[in-house]
Amino acid sequence: MTRARKPKLAVWKFASCDGCQLSLLDCEDELLAIAGEVEIANFLEASRAVVKGPYDLSLVEGSITTPHDAKRIQQVRRASKTLVTIGACATAGGIQALRNFKDVQEFVSVVYAQPKYIDSLAKSTPIADHVFVDFELRGCPISKQQLLEVLSAFLYGRKPNTPASSVCLECKRRGTTCVMVAQGTACLGPVTQAGCGALCPAYNRGCYGCFGPMETPNTVSLAAWWQTELDASDLDLLRALRTFNAYAGPFRKESEAHDRKQ
């Protein structure tokens, strides 16, 4: 399609492992097509050359964990026409949100020789807690296909196809036998959002919940089944729910219920 000018794309990093940004570089076959459609204006993982803002589309990776980042995300928002958060850190606070359940100052005092140089917020929070987010792309890491879908949808002004239904639908479509029913393996698939293509069950593992809670997660019922039928303990549930999306509302509440019972 002919455009007056290519939209400017920026990729931003906050507290994260860079894995989701790398999903963009991972689009090896499509990278030239992306570069053909957008001007990659700010993407430090790919190039030191930075084009000044404002930007048409900002992809934001990572969570907010420091006062400095809390200010910086405001600048990013102001410089971005459309802001899309990518990955569990940006959409739910990430694995580093485990600290939200404890006193971060205690960790700081134990881990660092000079705690006074550490300026950390009490909680690791998703980007949407700080600024308006146009679209959230889930996953730890995000799926390359879904990222391409979001980019295509942005370029042509349509809604991205990223269903919020359960992983089970993907599992059944690909014909994978349910690991929970057939093997008694604990699986978070029924309460987790689709998007990964039901990767883990296809390799005989239960779902780890990388894509966060699905649209209508009934964690109470699933947890009760794990406990009565799969002999899971409160600690097992706590550990299963407190991973990459530990601070996402439904997972957080369910894990807190089992934390209290422990």
Partner: peptide, 8 residues
């Protein structure tokens, strides 16, 4: 209360 709405 029991249904997961998972669609299985």
């Amino acid at each position: 209360e029991r249904c997961l709405s998972c669609g299985n």
